[in-house]
Simulated scan of single mutants.
Amino acid sequence: MAMASDKQANEENELLLSLPKDRGLGRGGYLHLFQDFWCPPFCFQGVINFQNHFLAKDNDVFVASFPKSGTTWLKALTFVIVNHQRFPSFEHHPLLSSNPHELVSFPEFILSHNLDDQIISLSNMSEPRLLATHLPFPSLPESITKSNCKIIYICRNPFDTFVSAWEFFTKISSVSSPALTFEEAFEKYCNGIMGFGPWWSHMLGYWNESITRPNKVLFLKYEDLKEDAVFHVKRMVEFLDTPITQGEDSTAVIENIINLCRFEKMKDLEVNKSGVIDNIVEKKNFFRKGKIGDWINYFSPSMIEKLSKIIEEKLSGSGLSFKLHS
């Protein structure tokens, strides 16, 4: 068995080395072009293991996102909704003592090591299982795309996504892989070179699926969620068909959920001020500003023009668009 796994690891390593690579926004500096997306090397083996070994259950719930698009917030909201019957008290909720990334795992990250143990632990999770992914829709395991499990996807306007990503990856860069300058990173981003990018094909994959199969994929925009949280959290509750909607106090429950997951509240919790996730990322780095339109403080007029043209060109005819809050 060990020899077989060694052989597989060698084959995966050879495959990784054969792929086109480039520097871009992502953990570790270099990214590899795999299945038409830019895969960070630290999770390459995990992506393959996820695709080959993960068995979805019909009642699974996945939160999917392009990095730095509101992932932490979506994980928190969905965790509270899915587990409302298990944890009905908002005063003693797991979210008050654990970071959302500790409560909702990425299989493509955790399956990079101790495969057998992690598969067992995933299969033994209490149901409905709630998991997360940054993978583009076409690269999800077939068991997810072909089962009845549900996916909630969040995206953010590409201007704020870039600023958030640049700030985040600059903070976690190391001496061995120094951060790109803002201008260098912007050029890479415009060419789609960011972990799990291109961002436009990532968004469009889930967007098109949400139109084709609205019972399978719920598509959210970060900006919409910020502007009318009650309406969109209700959409999430209805999409997941959870019992919160029963009874006259459902709106009060939804307002309590929103309050529990408020950016300012989560940022202020002791559990999110110190400690690290995956032994790499400090928890506090997941809570920067959480604002809409902060990009205006970073972009030059020529950058605004360039990215605006790319958005128009890439999303043209799809029906997907963004209001830019400048």
Rank of each mutant, 00 (worst) to 15 (best):
I211A: 04
K267M: 02
V230T: 12
V233S: 01
T78Q: 03
C149W: 12
P20S: 14
V47S: 00
E183K: 11
E127P: 00
R262F: 01
E142D: 05
L320E: 00
V281W: 07
H32M: 01
I280F: 15
I144D: 00
S147F: 07
C43L: 12
P138C: 06
M203W: 01
T245G: 06
K323R: 12
N59V: 02
A179P: 01
K57E: 15
F186D: 00
A2P: 01
G247N: 06
S5M: 15
K146C: 06
V276Q: 15
K273H: 04
K7W: 04
S176M: 07
K75D: 00
H53C: 11
L16T: 09
D278T: 00
S69K: 08
T71W: 07
I258K: 13
I144G: 04
G197M: 05
L19Y: 11
N49A: 15
L96A: 13
D278V: 01
V163I: 15
M266Q: 14
L77F: 03
D228K: 09
L55H: 10
E127I: 02
V281N: 08
M125H: 06
T145G: 06
L269V: 10
K323Q: 12
F62Q: 06
S318M: 02
I280S: 13
S176W: 01
E127S: 11
E255Q: 15
T245R: 13
F90P: 03
G317P: 08
F239P: 01
E238R: 11
I110F: 14
D117V: 02
I258L: 12
L225Q: 07
H232C: 03
P94Y: 08
S69N: 11
I144H: 11
P40N: 07
S174R: 14
K323T: 12
P40Q: 05
A185I: 02
E282T: 12
E11Q: 15
Q45D: 03
S308K: 13
S98L: 10
P136S: 10
I257S: 03
C190E: 05
P198N: 09
R235L: 07
K7Q: 11
P107L: 10
W207S: 04
E248V: 13
M1G: 13
F79S: 05
V82D: 02
L55N: 09
G290C: 08
L31G: 04
G275K: 06
G192Y: 00
S112I: 00
P40H: 00
P128I: 13
P198C: 12
G317Y: 10
F162M: 03
G247V: 07
L31D: 02
R27I: 04
M203S: 11
C155I: 05
H92M: 09
C261H: 07
A4I: 14
F66V: 08
K323W: 03
L260N: 07
I254W: 05
